[in-house]
């Protein structure tokens, strides 16, 4: 079975881990996150009749105390950049992070997940900004780890993109 290394990137508390927990089989404890800054999980998706194993590296969110370890990104085949749709700043932080990621590992298939889509009344990202990002080449998904909306779809999308590459 074909395997791909996929990283989950984004600021602290945007819901990366929640997205992963939503749909993966997991065997490691959450405390891996805080100890070594990464938790490895696995998700098998089927695209085009073919099974694909996604090994998900859920990387601990950046904050003022801890920078992300770039070495965890080595060899990744794709990544999901996660931002909290109810906090505009997290999107900008994610995009800034993305700059560093591209500088470190080069261009690989990526997807931008605007999470917490269930909280529509607190949504801070206006459609114009989204259109701008789409124009810049981003694939966007409004996901909700809470309801499960578009989570599967997001991973499937990325899988297809990685296979197409």
């Amino acid at each position: 079975m074909l395997q791909k290394k996929v990283c989950m990137l984004g600021s602290f508390s945007v819901g990366k881990s929640s997205l992963v927990r939503r749909l993966v089989e997991s065997m490691f404890d959450e405390q891996y996150h805080t100890t070594i800054g990464v938790k490895v999980d696995k998700k098998v998706v089927n695209t085009g009749g073919e099974d694909l194993t996604l090994v998900l590296w859920d990387i601990y969110g950046e904050d003022v105390f801890q920078k992300m370890r770039m070495s965890y990104l080595r060899g990744m085949h794709g990544y999901i950049l996660v931002a909290d749709g109810t906090r505009r700043q997290t999107l900008e932080d994610a995009l800034a992070l993305n700059e560093r990621v591209v500088a470190e590992v080069g261009k690989v298939p990526a997807l931008l997940a605007l999470n917490k889509s269930d909280l529509t009344d607190q949504w801070e990202i206006d459609p114009a900004r989204e259109a701008q990002l789409t124009a810049a080449g981003w694939t966007l998904e409004h996901t909700s780890a809470k309801t499960g909306d578009a989570v599967e779809k997001a991973f499937l999308h990325l899988a297809q993109a990685m296979l197409a590459k």
């Binding site: 395997q3 290394k5 089989e25 997991s26 065997m27 490691f28 891996y32 070594i36 800054g37 990464v38 938790k39 490895v40 999980d41 696995k42 194993t53 090994v55 590296w57 370890r69 070495s71 965890y72 080595r74």
Partner: peptide, 16 residues
């Protein structure tokens, strides 16, 4: 255990 995850974490630990 699941070899995929174990291997992933092993690599992560190495890098860590």
């Amino acid at each position: 255990q699941d070899a995929d995850m174990v291997a992933g974490l092993l690599s992560a630990i190495q890098q860590f």
